[in-house]
Amino acid sequence: MKVTLKVWRQSGPDAEGAFETFTDVPVDPAMSFLEMLDTVNVQLEAEGKEPVVFDHDCREGICGACGAVVNGLAHGPGKRSTLCQLHLRSFNDGDEITVEPWRASAFPVVRDLMVDRSSFDRIIQAGGYVSVRTGSAPDGNAMPIGKPVADRAMEAATCIGCGACVAACPNASAMLFTSAKVSHLGLVPQGQAERDSRVLGMVDQMDAEGFGGCTNHRECEAACPKGIGVEYIAQLNRDLVRANLGSAAK
């Protein structure tokens, strides 16, 4: 089978970008999307042309490095899938496939399909942790955590930080990403001591990075490779209000 690829090429953060078209790219239905880009790149390199730049690493859908908007959909048409787990069997012979990078002011383009997601790291640095000195922890079973709570915390903690939620959001909002970490640590007893300062700090940083606000379209949830739900956004909202009422009361 053959497809036509329109891939966004941009030589640097401040350069003008444009689509480059690769016609009649031979592909195998069992190939992953990134393997198709590999094929294009091997050809380009052999011709002495610069390969298409894209982030990728584990190719198992867990590292969160890969991602691009394929035919208008973050990570492409797959369900609960990263780009590396999207296979060409999701397309038809002769399809034209458009590929462009995540678009958000907080994710500036580095080159071609590669974007800078360090804003996510800074959101975590603003409070997405439990301050615990190595060696000072009590026994792991000292604090029982009911299975339902542990399971819900785990759901939230499965976030891979790929940025698809931002890419798919009409407002380029990072609420799903931020709320997943706020909720994961807010649900478990270990996270309680810093619960208020965490949500205040992380929401502050999220806004400072230039992400948009949430208007409850739920596009993030639909694009999330881990299926993290918007109920965690509600929990972030509640925690933020709680933290404010708490600080106002003091």
């Binding site: 959909l73 458009t98 678009r103 909002s173 230039g210 948009g212 379209h217 949830e221 694009a223």
Partner: peptide, 16 residues
Amino acid sequence: AARPVAYAAGRQNRVT
């Protein structure tokens, strides 16, 4: 302001 550069090929909605 959060998305000053729009998707050149348009963004598709899944569920909204």
